[in-house]
């Protein structure tokens, strides 16, 4: 396995690491839930990869994500905005409007025809419109996060969740469940509530098609469907949406190797 550069994305929920070859293609990746001691976790990541391919000393590493400054081995740190845009642009080969929904925040990034970031917006100081919103609700309804989307899509009707606040939405779910409403329509309503927040952000920067998606949350099929519904646009998703930040970081690292 030829490894020319490494990227690590220390997010709020998971840590992702990828390796790319000289051509910038993704050749290795690894992901696990973020540990309280991030720097030790990064050491373990690097040790795992080192055991596989030998010395990593010469290979440039760029870090991104909320914990990027904790990665001492990184030669550089870059924001998630730049990295997601860079990763998605390489994977999908197109500019447009990128929606990245992560565990703690969501972003809308307008990418120019040559991959330059033209504008961005992020959610405000609140978890509504982020993965945490769904995670909280999944826990309340005792449905694994990974299955939420599929379950929601089986709904034949939809309940409107009016609260945009994660905490209040939870109380709303409790009262709906207490009234005997089935789980599926509530779930669908939750997806819609999240996406409406994100769609408002899209409108604030102005949608430039096509609509591109990244981040762990877009693995959820209901989210993809509701985004398409709410924006009226076809959505394009890279093969590994969750790894786009780490991929972008690795691509920046590749530039350092030159």
């Amino acid at each position: 396995m030829e490894i020319a550069a490494l990227g690590i994305d220390v997010g709020s929920t998971t840590v992702k690491m990828v390796a790319v070859n000289r051509a910038g293609a993704l050749v290795w990746d690894y992901l696990e839930p973020v540990a309280p001691r991030v720097s030790r976790q990064v050491d373990d990541f690097l040790a795992k990869l080192g055991a596989k391919i030998g010395s990593l000393a010469e290979i440039p590493l760029v870090a991104t994500g909320y914990g990027r400054n904790l990665v001492q081995q990184a030669r550089q740190s870059k924001t998630e905005i730049s990295c997601h845009a860079h990763g998605v642009f390489q994977e999908l080969g197109h500019g447009g409007t990128l929606i990245d929904i992560g565990g703690q925040d969501s972003k809308v990034i307008v990418i120019g025809a040559r991959g330059r970031i033209l504008d961005f917006a992020m959610n405000d100081k609140c978890a509504a419109g982020t993965g945490r919103f769904l995670e909280n609700s999944a826990a309340r309804m005792q449905i694994p996060v990974a299955e939420m989307g599929a379950v929601a899509l089986t709904a034949t009707e939809e309940f409107t969740i009016t609260s945009t606040c994660t905490v209040f939405a939870e109380s709303e779910i409790i009262s709906l469940l207490a009234q005997g409403v089935a789980v599926e329509p509530i779930l669908m309503g939750l997806h819609r509530a999240l996406v409406k927040r994100v769609a408002a952000m899209v409108r604030s920067v102005g949608l430039v098609p096509p609509l591109l998606l990244s981040g762990g949350v877009v693995k959820n099929p209901a989210i993809r469907k509701v985004i398409a519904d709410e924006t009226g646009e076809e959505v394009f998703v890279p093969t590994h949406p969750q790894l786009m930040g780490a991929l972008g970081a690795a691509l920046f690292a590749l530039k350092l190797a030159d």
Binding site: Y66, K78, T79, E80, I81, S82, D105, R116, I117, F120, M122, D124, K125
Partner: peptide
Amino acid sequence: EADHDDPRAYAEAQVASRLAAFVEMLDD
């Protein structure tokens, strides 16, 4: 998003990440 006087309406981690991305854009 912040508040001129009340630090409870200000989230440094989020501001820092927006500011860093903005600086990267300025340099791009």
